[in-house]
Design a protein around this nucleic acid. Structure first.
Length: 747
DNA sequence: GCAAGGTC
């Protein structure tokens, strides 16, 4: 019997697809890599009964990187990265994906690709083909097919299977081009900046001064807001505050139709005008029905916004929690752009799962009884259905933030099927001495969905009386109040997400990563209310780009590049030409940036202190015998101001002088690195650590004798260690025993 | 030690 090999983008999808295509009768087993499952069944394909095998990858099979020596920061000038050779390598070596695919596809006559229907998915199609084409059985005619589907429903999937096409090479090539561009540009700028500024300053407090086409514009948004705050000039303005007495004797404040004026004399004139009319005359009373609409079905970015502003959770943390809730079966797939339920979605069934819930069961039962409402019509991006609860969980089933996120997702889902919130709005218009005023009040009529999302509820009822036209009221007060305009606040995380989405910076899956990056690199700090306040480092970076080449930080840069790449995807432009053109432009931009780096450096100079001024003396240099300074700001390193040399150190630990012992090889004083909780420690020579003394020694090399992490031989990465025998001598690696190093005592 | 994009 012939066989068909099928591949989805992720394990969960392979399972759903196999279930549909096999009508629920399949044999499943774990694949050899432990991550992917294989589902087998028999079915009909091209008029024949065949063996079907459905499995998946885990996202991209391959990634790209520079070849060998170009990964060495010390041996390669970053400008070479624009022309350096690039290779594809396994995205995750542990998964052994190419081997797994080749093994499972072996002998199959047909390949059906069920990867996500976007450009990345198209690119993964060709990665899969590359892995399996040589192990398939050759038969006449088309052997490789592409399924195009827009929802994971019976009808859609079976329809796609009966109407297969071919993978789209152009779309895949546009992804190849993007990967290569991002790699060359990002790495060239990052390495250059990092080396330049870390070689000069001691208090940057970031292990990396990175640049990227997504992270840098993301930082740009935060600094833009900071600049607005800094350059804000408060302006004085005046408002007229008036109060009238109602027929029942109560007082009521009125809103001035002019709201405010920016000229004191004009304001005073209005006050005089108003005071000249002793009564307030009712011009009209208008009543209208107001409506607060329920939310759209939940997609990823909306979830991230709400989690940040409402739950105080970072996007990165939110995705980690959502991922876990998904794996445990509590919610649907959490990465989706779609905020419209597909027609086949079992809304009622999903709602019924929640009807016995202690927190919202009674609301759900009432909703089911009175008839749930149609959800609002949103956008279908063709990826996954909106994020919804998949089974009922109580507060005791989940912990802390997991519960809070599940609680939100479920309330949001219920709200999308609830009625809108209705209220009655009454506005009374007044005239006092030819100036107009009004007063508005809202009275709740039906809370609708706000009952399940109480934080969106209308405020307290503000009932105001309906007053007949021409009613005259006493004016109790006419006051001139002086105020000042206030600066905007720092950019909130949820505003940032909106800006990124609007400018096409990052994707639903990568937006949290970019935001996390600019926090971890210490370009911004999170202040209360999850607002992003740029640090000095973040500010001088962005201002520096603006001085040298503002394109580098412009939010339009990413979309401009993507537009070019879309030409490749649509077959309207040649892959090599477009890619080379973009590389050439950024190559020039890079050279220009390097030439003009003093413009950015001027900003660094006034903000940061030089390496020579930073740090505290700790140990003697083996060359000049003077004390070197330990620079403790990230990345921790040693600096000898006499030799003007910097020596990197192991990170994330404490560095102390080690018994004032000297390295027998180079006379540098030894240091002891210790790390907190587990109390790991080892002595090292700062020179040997950076310049391995023996051939074939690499940084971070473990024990080459027994590879045990606590074995004293593990110190071999530094070339020296305390002698385990006499505890007095120093062990050095014996190069005569290469390639198996051996320690020998110098005493 | 670099980017951004998939996903676990």
């Amino acid at each position: 019997m012939k066989s068909v090999f099928m591949v989805a983008e992720k394990p969960s999808l392979a399972q759903s697809l196999a279930k549909i295509l096999s009508n629920g009768s399949m044999n499943s087993r774990k694949g050899m890599n432990g991550a992917c499952s294989v589902h087998e069944f028999t079915g009909r394909f091209r008029g024949e009964t065949m063996r079907m095998k459905m499995t998946s990858v885990c996202g991209h099979v391959m990634g790209c990187d520079f070849v060998g020596k170009y990964n060495n920061w010390d041996k390669v000038d970053p400008v070479e990265l624009f022309t350096a050779p690039i290779q594809k390598k396994e995205a995750n070596e542990k998964l052994r994906m190419p081997a797994f695919l080749a093994k499972e596809a072996s002998g199959a006559e047909y390949l059906v690709l069920w990867l996500d229907c976007d450009k990345e998915g198209e690119n993964i199609c060709f990665e899969v083909i590359e892995c399996v084409e040589n192990v398939m059985t050759r038969v006449a005619g088309q052997q490789v097919f592409r399924a195009k589907f827009s929802a994971i429903t019976d009808q859609e999937i079976k329809g796609a299977f009966n109407n297969l096409g071919a993978p789209n090479k152009n779309e895949s090539l546009s992804v190849d081009a993007r990967q290569e561009l991002d790699l060359r540009i990002g790495c060239a700028f990052t390495r250059y900046q990092t080396k330049f500024f870390q070689g000069k300053y001691g208090d940057l407090d970031s292990t990396l001064i990175s640049y990227g086409p997504c992270q840098t514009p993301t930082l740009g948004f935060c600094v833009e807001r900071h600049d607005k705050i800094q350059s804000f000039k408060p302006e004085a303005y005046w408002v007229v505050s008036t109060q009238v007495q109602l027929p029942d004797g109560k007082s009521m404040k009125l809103d001035w139709e002019r709201v405010r004026v920016f000229d004191k004399e004009v304001a005073q004139m209005f006050v005089n005008l108003i005071r000249s009319g002793d009564k307030a005359c009712v011009l009209d009373t208008v009543q209208k029905k107001g409506e607060k609409t329920k939310p759209l079905a939940l997609n990823t970015v909306e979830m991230l916004r709400v989690a940040s502003s409402g739950l105080g959770l970072s996007p990165h943390h939110t995705m980690q929690i959502a991922e876990r809730l998904y794996i445990q079966g509590y919610i649907s797939y959490p990465r989706t752009e779609t905020n419209n339920y597909p027609d086949s979605f079992d809304l009622k069934g999903t709602l019924r799962q929640q009807q016995d819930h202690p927190n919202w069961g009674s609301f759900v039962r009432k909703l089911l009884q009175e008839g749930m409402k149609q959800p609002k019509k949103g956008q279908d991006a063709g990826d996954h259905p909106p994020i919804t609860p998949m089974r009922c969980a109580r507060e005791s089933d989940l912990e802390g933030d997991s519960w809070r996120l599940y609680d939100y997702i479920t309330r949001h889902f219920i709200a999308t099927l609830s009625p809108n919130c209705y209220y009655l709005q009454t506005t009374v218009f007044f005239e006092i001495g030819s100036e107009q005023f009004s007063c508005t009040g809202k009275v709740l009529q039906d809370p609708g969905f706000t009952e399940i999302m109480p934080w969106l509820a209308l405020g307290e009822d503000e009932e105001i009386p309906t007053l007949k036209k021409n009613t005259m009221l006493d004016v109790e007060e006419v006051k001139l109040i002086d105020r000042q305009t206030s600066p905007p606040d720092y950019l909130s995380e949820s505003e940032l997400i909106t800006l990124m989405e609007k400018h096409g910076i990052g994707t639903d899956a990568s937006i949290p990563v970019h935001i996390n990056n600019i926090c971890e690199r210490n370009y911004v700090s999170i202040i209360p209310g999850r607002k992003l306040q740029p640090t000095n480092l973040g500010i001088v970076l962005v201002h520096g780009y603006q001085k040298i080449d503002s394109d580098l930080v412009l939010p339009t840069m990413r979309s401009a590049v993507e537009q070019q790449l879309n030409m490749i995807a649509m077959g309207q432009a040649n892959f090599y030409e477009v890619k080379q053109h973009a590389i050439d432009i950024f190559h020039l931009k890079f050279r220009y940036f390097v030439q003009n780096i003093p413009a950015m450096d001027e900003l660094f100079e006034v903000t940061f202190s030089s390496l020579a001024d930073a740090g505290r003396p700790i140990s003697r240099c083996g060359k000049c015998r003077r004390f070197m300074k330990l620079v403790e700001a990230k990345p921790a390193r040693l600096h000898c101001s006499i030799c003007d040399s910097t020596y990197s150190l192991p990170q994330n630990g404490n560095i102390k002088l080690y018994k004032e012992l000297k390295c027998p090889l180079d006379e540098f004083e030894l240091l002891l690195w210790t790390t907190g909780a587990k109390g790991k420690s080892y002595p090292l020579c700062p020179y040997c650590y950076n310049n391995p003394p023996f051939k074939d020694m690499r940084k971070g090399m473990g024990c080459n004798e027994c590879s045990h992490p606590t074995c004293p031989h593990a110190f071999s990465q530094n070339g020296v260690s305390e002698c385990v025998e006499c505890e007095r001598g120093i062990l050095v690696l014996d190069p005569t025993s290469a390639p198996k190093w051996r320690m020998c005592c110098n005493k």
